[in-house]
Each structure stands twice: as structure tokens, then as C-alpha cells.
Design a protein around this nucleic acid. Structure first.
Lengths: 210, 210
DNA sequence: TAGATTGTTAATCGATTAACAATC
DNA sequence: TAGATTGTTAATCGATTAACAATC
């Protein structure tokens, strides 16, 4: 199948559609037009139709979109029908918080392991998962066919661990360390969550009002 | 002062410049050209110069940019010389993790209070701050001139609490609840961190490889 | 001075919006 | 059938990149 290249702008909007459609579904809304959805989401109807038509025609003239059908279709596009075996590397506050976040499980991201170097943390159990020594990570990844790693480490440690993860055959890294990881293998996908960047954007916008 | 409207694309890149310049500063790099910075950051030199010139001429022909000067200038643009009195609403795992995150303090975001409705959490101390009942939030905000609220609540509770925060005179909300807040007051700035959206983007990009 | 590199204008590229024929 | 709304092409808008004169 020849897949037309989808721009990242479009891809980044997909989870938002998915979220709104999920809410509609919870409220038993059966169908919705791009116009009505555009009102709720605060975007143009034109953009919604353009975005969706990158992936196929999900609607029907004169009717609109079936909410459940579109919700499932976008879920599939986002790869949410897959199960992702996940580990969390760095079991500090943030790592533990993410381990406890049940919303990830619901979408198929199952936390199988937690790793840290801190002897005080090793052996502690978070949500039924024992924190293990980082030394054991390589074997664990191979034995449990881990796909995904969540990196919640200090930035000094992140690059080395990231490259280790690559060599152990991980497919993707969800990175919370405040650094842009440069990986040796371009096939490994990195998604960065720069929390401080987001906070600074907020700071920029309110700075005149303080 | 008539301020030319700065696009959000530019604003969102500022923290990244700030981050890279901070790293250079740590490594005692005194000056840098847009070309060299573009290599490190993986963006075009042209974009760097365009972005910076939205705020003034920080460089010098034939020399480049003084790292420390530019770092401080961007910090100022981002409003990081301000102190922001901050509360965290929702003292679950994520709320507590953020309360413990010292990087925020370093940038002037000082956590003054923690609030929750869960009686099991109320009274517990996190990093020297006692978790208080949500009922006390209104008075606390006024008495401690709180500027900013971090929202780490379930999505069902977020809209009401957000509107309460607005009525108590908060200036900005850093929202971690998976919902787009619609506020009654347009002067209150909301910055959303949709963690699940970010994870789904990652999922999209690795889905073919699983 | 000569070389380097900025600030800034102009050109290009891509993303968003508008419009409308097709069709349910 | 008539009205509604899609899918899609065309027009517009804005952001990025290229180019280069100015100047350190």
C-alpha cells in the first residue's frame, strides 16, 4: 500500500479528535457533522474534513459521521488496538506516578517493569511491580519482548540509557528527561514530553499580568 | 510599547533555545553563531535568526551571539525573572510528583499549597507542604496571592475546579486533566499537557513496527 | 583589512480555509 | 424529492527558508 505522507500537524490532532469522539460516545451521541464537531473543538469544519480524508472517507453526505465508527477508526489509525509492553526507567516520583496511571493501561500500554539505580528504591513494589536494578534491564527487555520505554531519569543519565535501550531492541521511547535524545538508530521513535517547556510557554503568556 | 504579534510557533520554540543555551552555558561556551546552534538543535540557522529578531537584535555581525546574554534575554522574554506563587490542585500521584520536582522551583515556580478532596490525603505532608482540603483553597489563594494553579485532577472534577480558580483570581492554569478547559474568563491563560495525546502520537509512529 | 555572520527582505513552501459539485 | 453535509479542488494565508547587503 502506498501511503501518502501525513504531516505531523495532522497526526498531532488525531488524539484530540479521539478524545472528543470518546466524550461524545460516553454521552450516547450517535452521529455528528464536521460543523457540530468544529463548534465543540474550536477548529474549522474544513480542517476536520481535510484531516480525516487523509485516511479515507469516514462520513456520509447529508448525514455526517457515525461517532462510534469514527472513534474506532481513529483508534486504529493511532495504533491503539495494539498491546505495547512497556517499562519505566527511572522510578522516582514521576516514574512511580506514571506507573500508577491507569489511563495508559486502558489504551494498551501495559507497564511490565520498573528500573532504577537507587538502592533505596530497588525492591519496592509499585502497583504490584517490583522496582529492579538497572543492570537487569537488558535481559528483562528481551525476555518480556518489551516494545516501549518511558524515560523518567535525570538528563545526565538519559542519553546513555537511551542508547542502551536501542541496543536492547526497544521500538520507541517516551522521554520525560529535559533533553533531546540523539539516537544511533533512526528506526527507534522518540516522543519528548518537555514539561518545563510547556510551563515556560504558560509563563510567557501570563508574564504581563503578574 | 506596540508589540508585534508573535506567533505561537515562535513562542513554543523559545524554551528549546533556552534549554540549549543553558547547556552551552554549563559547558562554558561563550559565543555561538546561528549556524553552529542550528547544527546542534537540528533546525535552520535562518529560523533561529528570524525567531530571535521578533524580540530584537541580540547578535553581532561577524561574531554571533553571546551565550550568557542571549540566555538571560530569552529567560526574560519567557518571564522567568518573575516569581510565580503556585498551588497544586489534586494531590494524587502526579500532583505529588510535580510537588517534588525541584526544576520548577529553580525557574521561579514556587509551590505554596497542595489541595485535594480525599480525606486520606488531607494532612499528609509533601516536601514540607501539608495537603489541605479543597474547601480551603479560595481563602488560601487570596491570602497567599497565588498566581498559578497546577491541575492534576480527574477530568470529571477539572471544569468546576477550574472555574472556581478563575473566580478566586488565579492568572494561569497548567492543566494535566485530559480535557480542554473552557473558562468563563478569557484573561486566564490555560496551558494543557495532554500526556495521553503525546503517548498516542508515539503509538502512531511505532504501530507499523510492533 | 578580510572574513564571518548578523538582521532583514524576498521567495518558497506547506498548511489552513473557502467553495462547491457530488450524493446520501 | 429537498436539505444536509460530505469529499475534494482551488484560493488564501502564514510560516519557513534562501539570499544578501550591512557591519562587526
Amino acid at each position: 500500500m502506498i501511503q501518502k505522507k501525513i504531516s505531523t500537524a495532522v497526526i498531532k490532532r488525531l488524539p484530540k479528535y479521539y478524545r472528543y469522539l470518546g466524550d461524545l460516545l460516553e454521552n450516547d451521541v450517535v452521529r455528528i457533522s464536521s460543523k457540530e464537531l468544529s463548534n465543540r473543538m474550536g477548529v474549522t469544519a474544513s480542517q476536520i474534513r481535510q484531516d480525516l480524508n487523509n485516511f479515507g472517507g469516514f462520513g456520509q453526505q447529508g448525514y455526517g459521521y457515525n461517532v462510534e465508527y469514527l472513534y474506532n477508526a481513529i483508534g486504529k489509525i493511532l495504533g491503539l488496538e495494539n498491546k505495547y509492553n512497556t517499562i519505566i526507567v527511572g522510578a522516582g516520583n514521576l516514574g512511580q506516578a506514571l506507573a500508577n496511571y491507569t489511563n495508559f493501561d486502558k489504551r494498551g500500554f501495559e507497564v511490565k517493569g520498573l528500573f532504577d539505580v537507587n538502592p533505596r528504591l530497588i525492591g519496592i513494589t509499585v502497583r504490584g511491580i517490583e522496582i529492579k536494578d538497572l543492570d537487569e534491564m537488558g535481559n528483562f527487555i528481551k525476555e518480556n519482548s518489551i516494545d516501549l520505554a518511558i524515560l523518567t531519569l535525570p538528563k545526565q543519565k538519559a542519553p546513555k540509557v537511551a542508547n542502551d535501550l536501542v541496543s536492547y531492541g526497544i521500538k520507541g521511547i517516551w522521554n520525560f528527561a529535559p533533553i533531546d535524545l540523539k539516537l544511533s538508530n533512526k528506526n527507534v521513535i522518540v516522543e519528548n514530553v518537555h514539561l518545563l517547556d510547556s510551563l515556560m510557554t504558560l509563563s510567557y503568556n501570563i508574564k504581563e499580568r503578574i
